[in-house]
Write a protein that binds this DNA or RNA. Structure first.
Lengths: 200, 200, 200, 200
DNA sequence: TTATAATCGAGACGGTACGTCACGTCTTAGT
DNA sequence: ACTAAGACGTGACGTACCGTCTCGATTATAA
């Protein structure tokens, strides 16, 4: 009896909400890929997700929230530190990760958002930036601790420039940075010794 | 597509126009200072300029055009190269100029625009960036020519990082860069020898 | 012990619905008093009743049903005829009753409903009107039977005008009818003889 | 020269606005006739008028305004007094007018509005009622002045009841009042003498 | 006592309409 | 030759209720 009434249980995964959330997530990605974050609309996402507009407003009160929910998985990657044994290697791993993230539609959207200064995103951007910069700081701190880097080195600025340099590369050069480009950046911001040791 | 149907005739010469153009320019500045580029409206400018909205549309077909007309004087400053005798000095002068420009309302607007990725601004931004980067390149080339800088130095990347580092500083640090901050950036991106010589 | 109290509660109250029904009834009254029938919402009632919205929809499929359940006790008063011995007296008693009903929040709601023409209320209103008019007709019939009223008198119209006159008074005059107002209405619609006899 | 440029002038009457206003007026009528005032929507009118919704909002800030603009011509009829020589005749003319107005879609809408008590219409209704009642008062005053009516007659109540009686007739009887119905109303509210004299 | 049948609360959803905002276009008249 | 004034279509905004549905949890009554 009970079995027959709940005939969809085995098929559907989780409640209806999950379906909706997922399809909205996908549609958001699609829309951002299509028109960019700056000019994507809730209406557009709703249509693409085949979901009612009000439903979106119920769960995501703003475009920022929508972006956040789409971008979260990306950011989480930065929580795990690489450990290659050298500053250069660690930073390279991080910059590669940023570049590869930026190649994904959600990554592009994030970059756009970071740089849009809309105000609605202020908080989100702040959090994201902090979270992305953190592993750079940790890697540099490790390098200082293991005497690979002069303690007097300006690690804050190095981290900032490396991060910024990768993140904005495509905006400025109209193409994503190659591995070589990344190395050039790192060689430029890292003190020579460590930089050379890294590539050696 | 849209271009072909546009009725806007562009900026014109004539007695009345000058009045209008100027008051719109001022009002645009005021509006950008008030609400930022991201969310300033033609309506707002029109009201502030005490000019009819249609009049603005006639002369400036887009917000980008409005921005461009307001930002031009700023950019022109970059056309004249500083000549302090050292790379460090030259680059410092340029970064100071960028910082000081960014302190003006139109400068903020420009930064916002540069980083907004709206698409309507793509072209403008490309031009601006090129124009702002150019003096960096020229300064570095001069340094190479006078053997102050190793010819093998990655001048493109140095220029790019220095520029980007200053331009985005406030976005990332919530305060404009001090002179010391600028020096830290330059010390980080410039090869040690030249860097030291610069401050010496 | 617990068993016996449980049983008692069950016997006393029947299904727990009774609780809900009552609190919804009260809340409906409160809401109608607060915002009027025209713009009261199921949401509002649900909140005020501290009951889930779906619960209301389960029992009352429409606002009309909600209104009906609240208004019923009011209407029941009209089922008992007054017997003052004179037409004027009887009609006065009826009009007083209408006026007093209209002073209650549910009465106001009823009036509003009667006159809203929403369509969803068409049937309800028809029934209510008939039921309210009936005692007028009965009173006039009695008067004819006891020769107080000329059989040629247009009792239908008299009943209709008296009823309508009281019911709409406040709409037109912005204040409820005083006893004197009611008498004026009756004196106007009743043939002189009976009218005079009534007040004598 | 001028002729060729203004080639549409002869055809279109007035500016575009006039066209819009008129088509909205017509569409409003149609919508009110279709669904009643209580549940007609701006969207519906906009679609029916083939005009954008915002355009409607620009001119008519509320449904009340829309109603008013549609109902005005109707009301104006009440500004001219009939002059038949007798109270009964005058009042009959007025009630006939009301009935005939109520037969039109805009008249129905008005009745609905008058009785909807939405609050948004409060003011409109007050004005309309006053304007419709006024000719009744004037007719009765004239009757008193020419000694056709006892000065002690309760003219206020007579006017009110006659008006109300006609206006609400259809609501209560499900059919418009015939001429005979109107006469019955008048005979009931007018003092016998004058009433008889009127028809004699 | 223990099922079974009624409710109820909670939460989500699709949907319609609201009223507002800014956009960019157009026309007419005025200076 | 320009500008002012004003209207319009368009698209999106974010909100409010509507009515419906499904899912446990709770309770009442009957086996």
């Amino acid at each position: 009896m009970t079995e027959s009434t709940r005939r969809t249980r085995g098929v559907q995964r989780g409640p209806r909400s999950v379906q909706v959330v997922e399809s909205v997530r996908v549609a958001t990605l699609a829309e951002m890929a299509r028109v960019g974050f700056a000019s994507f609309t809730i209406d557009g996402v709703a249509k693409a997700a085949n979901v009612n507009r009000t439903t979106i407003y119920r769960r995501w009160p703003s475009r920022a929230a929508l972006l956040a929910s789409v971008v979260e998985p990306l950011i989480e990657r930065y929580d795990a530190d690489p450990d290659t044994g050298s500053v250069h290697g660690d930073l390279l791993a991080l910059t590669v990760m940023i570049r590869d993230n930026a190649a994904l539609p959600e990554g592009r959207a994030l970059i756009e958002a970071v740089t849009s200064g809309t105000g609605e995103l202020r908080e989100l951007v702040r959090a994201m930036t902090a979270r992305t910069l953190a592993p750079f700081h940790r890697a540099l701190d490790r390098a200082v601790r293991r005497h690979e880097l002069d303690p007097a080195a300006d690690v804050k600025v190095i981290a900032y420039l490396a991060f910024q340099g990768v993140a904005m590369w495509e905006q400025a050069h109209d193409r994503p940075p190659t591995d070589d480009d990344l190395n050039r950046i790192l060689r430029t911001v890292l003190p020579p010794a460590s930089g050379l040791r890294g590539v050696a």
